Simulated assay, not measured.
Amino acid sequence: MAADEAQLSPPESLLRLIDNLARFHRQHEEYYSQAPLQQAGGLQERSRVLKALADRWSVVGVREQASAVASAGAEDLNAPGLVAESGVLFMEGEGEPAELQRMKREVGLLADDVEQTGAWLANAMEQAWDLAGSLAAYPALADLLGERHRIIANDWQSAALQSLIARLLRRALDLLARVDFAPAALRADLRGARKVPAYLYSASELLDRAADLMLESATLVHDNEHRWRIFRARVRELESA
């Protein structure tokens, strides 16, 4: 490489580092452009459970315990078709269905996961921003700095969404914590103010919004795919020069 060309390009050690980052971070983002789609689908399924119960409990007439036999299905509390779809079954003489308890645990774990991922990604983008700024010293990469900074901006925005998603999920759990899902308690509410359906509708709307933001996060990360390929192609070209 001629002396003037060497001044235009980053040193070989920096090119190797950039190539490594571009290769592995692109692979990492391939995962995070898909995983949120599955997570969003899971949240929408849980939201439908809450809506189905709220729909049922908004209109159903309240009955006394239909059977003295423990574990008999509660005719008034179970939403049509929901037991087979979700496994959520209200039984006489029982408390909160195990499936609802599991659903809330899973939502809480997801909130922890996305919060940790968002915090890690935000910190990583702080470092990436500084490194990308240092590349401005090399004219051979000047036309790609827009692409590199767009990647960072997309990831940074995704990190912020992860933090908001965690907040929405935890607030949905706060609302559900105000509901006693034991059949006796539900029937008492249905005979009175019927506040439980309102809590369920609101919690489901928060889950829906969290799912929407997960899709936005996946879209942002997916937008990086083409940019990574362009950026890495130039780095490999300079490495081979």
Rank of each mutant, 00 (worst) to 15 (best):
A6T: 14
L8N: 13
I18Y: 03
N20H: 14
A22G: 08
R26V: 00
E29W: 15
Y31D: 05
S33V: 10
Q38A: 15
Q39T: 15
A40K: 02
R48P: 00
K51W: 05
E64P: 04
S67A: 11
A68N: 14
A72E: 15
L77N: 09
V83I: 09
S86H: 08
M91D: 05
G93A: 07
P97V: 10
A98E: 12
A98M: 12
K104G: 02
E106P: 01
V107F: 04
L110F: 01
A111P: 15
A111F: 03
D113C: 00
G118L: 07
L121D: 00
M125F: 01
W129R: 06
L131N: 12
G133H: 04
L135D: 04
A136F: 09
Y138W: 14
P139E: 00
A140C: 15
A142E: 05
G146R: 07
I151K: 01
A153C: 07
A153Y: 03
W156N: 07
L161I: 04
Q162S: 15
L169F: 03
R171K: 06
L173Q: 06
A177I: 00
A177N: 06
R178P: 01
D180F: 01
P183Q: 12
A193Y: 02
K195Q: 11
Y201M: 05
E205F: 00
A210T: 08
A211E: 01
D212N: 12
L213S: 08
L215G: 07
S217L: 03
L220Y: 15
N224A: 09
W228I: 05
V235I: 14
S240N: 13
